[in-house]
């Protein structure tokens, strides 16, 4: 049997092994990190916060004709939390966001909500927000690469997004992911 025919005979085996190795490597990479992170990793991690004007809400949660000023948070670690009164998981994460606000300032972006409903939500579940921005059209959320509410971002002293969590911020995530990042950046 010459080399050529041997290679030809082994070709299916070589191909099969190649596919198995590639699939194995892909699976290994996926298993290395939690699935959630792989599926919903923000493209904006490591990038500056989107340069878009966000209208600031007044005490009645109405538009006060001022833009949210992020300059106040320059050289500070802070969080941005997208929320809405109609969003059930936002109620679940409310106490954790409250805890987060005791450590770093949290800016809330109220997503497609009526001022009265937002006000009631904050009265019922507490207002952990240093400032509140309004996103009635959903455009700000898209600029931030948001899939839906709630979503939470951590922004470092340079104004870069260093962490994003899609979905309600639960205590286990807060302890295992958020707190270590805050500690290492303080």
């Amino acid at each position: 049997m010459n080399t050529k025919s041997l290679v030809l005979r082994l070709l299916p085996l070589i191909l099969f092994s190649f596919i198995i190795i590639v699939s194995g490597l892909v699976l290994y990479e996926l298993k290395k990190k939690p699935t959630k992170k792989n599926l919903l990793t923000s493209q904006l991690i490591g990038k500056k916060i989107p340069d878009i004007k966000i209208q600031e809400a007044d005490n009645n949660l109405e538009n006060n004709n001022k833009n949210l000023n992020f300059k106040k948070y320059k050289n500070k670690l802070f969080a941005v939390n997208f929320f809405a009164s109609w969003c059930a998981p936002c109620r679940v994460e409310a106490p954790i966001v409250e805890d987060l606000s005791k450590i770093i300032p949290v800016i809330g972006i109220v997503y497609k909500d009526k001022p009265n409903n937002t006000k009631k939500f904050l009265d019922d579940f507490g207002n952990p927000y240093d400032k509140i921005g309004i996103d009635n059209s959903g455009k700000i959320a898209i600029e931030w690469g948001v899939y839906g509410v709630p979503e939470t971002f951590l922004i470092n002293e340079e104004g870069k997004i260093i962490y994003r969590h899609a979905g309600p911020l639960l205590y286990n995530i807060f302890k295992s992911e958020v707190l270590p990042i805050i500690k290492s950046n303080k």
């Binding site: 059209s137 959903g138 455009k139 839906g148």
Partner: peptide
């Protein structure tokens, strides 16, 4: 992004509508 096997053209989800407007 919030549906299964649909383009935003076919979807009526809020995010799809916002993306189309944008």
């Amino acid at each position: 992004l919030v549906c299964q096997n649909q383009s935003i053209d076919e979807s009526n989800s809020e995010l799809a509508k916002d993306l189309k407007n944008l």
